[in-house]
């Protein structure tokens, strides 16, 4: 597996790609915060946020369909919010009979509004996060994290983690393949290899084994670094430049988000 699989669109050249990474990170966070603060049932405000996102995507010249597909990732979590349909007090809209348990569930109007609002908030937030990830190279993201005051040690750890994910993922996949080849999984439809406890113990052994290998690897990595002059201080190449244009971008984005917020409060 190669690190480049994640970087398909990150090296593009567009106004969005060229923005200061700090502006992109702070802007994305501001957008998501704005989505979280939008009141229930402000449908047009959510439409406005979506249009804003779409405009940025078109500017970035990234296929929106790909981002939309990736944005579906958070959808299964919606199950956690289903209960508000029935529990929020309001006018009854629809009564559902659950035959198996004999329950009678009533969907209230307030509940329905809250549920759809949560889905929309989640939707636009995930879309913005995918846009950020799709147009920012990983070193730029790290630089942005340093820029907004995340501790250097933590940023360094994340950088190393990113470098070794693919190495350790390959080892993990090798171990999974080895396990499958040694009958932990039977042919289709057949239960293979022992009880659940037995299977859990095998996986535990794999986890332990991977830990031991990782520890040994981290020691080799450290020695290789030490022999090349590493003394506990990670050095970063260039300080992020911040041009006037970047500040203007951020100011405009925040202004638009504020206007959408004001408008959302007027229309609800």
């Amino acid at each position: 597996m190669h690190i480049n699989v994640l970087d398909q669109f990150k090296s593009g050249d567009s106004p969005i790609h060229r923005l200061d990474p700090r502006v992109k990170l702070v802007g994305a966070l501001a957008f998501i915060l704005a989505a979280a603060l939008t009141p229930d049932g402000a449908w047009l405000a959510f439409l406005a946020l979506f249009v804003l996102w779409l405009a940025l995507v078109l500017m970035a010249d990234v296929p929106p369909g790909l981002l939309l597909r990736r944005g579906l990732a958070a959808l299964p979590f919606a199950a956690a919010a289903v209960t508000v349909l029935f529990t929020l007090p309001g006018q009854a809209l629809l009564t559902v009979q659950v035959p198996l348990f004999g329950w009678q569930l009533t969907i209230s109007d307030a509940g329905l509004v809250r549920f759809v609002t949560i889905l929309l908030k989640s939707g636009v937030s995930v879309l913005m996060a995918t846009l950020l990830a799709a147009t920012t190279t990983f070193p730029d993201l790290l630089r942005a994290m340093r820029g907004i005051g995340i501790p250097k040690v933590l940023v360094g750890t994340i950088a190393f983690m990113y470098r070794y994910i693919f190495v350790l993922a390959d080892e993990a996949l090798t171990m999974l393949r080895a396990r499958d080849a040694r009958s932990a999984a039977g042919p289709a439809g057949q239960k293979g290899g022992g009880t659940v406890f037995w299977r859990a113990r095998i996986v535990g052994g794999m986890v332990g084994s991977l830990f031991v290998r990782s520890l040994a690897r981290s020691e080799r990595v450290y020695q290789a670094m030490a022999s090349r002059g590493y003394a506990g201080e990670l050095r970063w190449l260039d300080k992020p430049r911040s041009q006037t244009m970047d500040i203007v971008w951020l100011a405009v984005l925040v202004l638009v988000l504020l206007l959408i917020q004001l408008w959302a409060r007027l229309i609800t």
Binding site: V153, G156, T157, I158, A159, F160, M161, Y162, R163, Y164, I165, V167, L168, A169, E171, A172, L173, M175, L176, A184, A185, K191, V196, R199, A200, I202, V203, M206, V207, L210, F211, S214, L215, R217, S218, V221, Y222, M225, A226, Y230, A231, G232, L234
Partner: peptide
Amino acid sequence: SSQTFDERLVPLMGVLAAFIFAAQAFNFP
């Protein structure tokens, strides 16, 4: 953590974070 592991901290934590990430892929039916 910086006090405990001094200059080894970043490579050690980074590789072990990758370990946890990879180990989360392990599943069993």
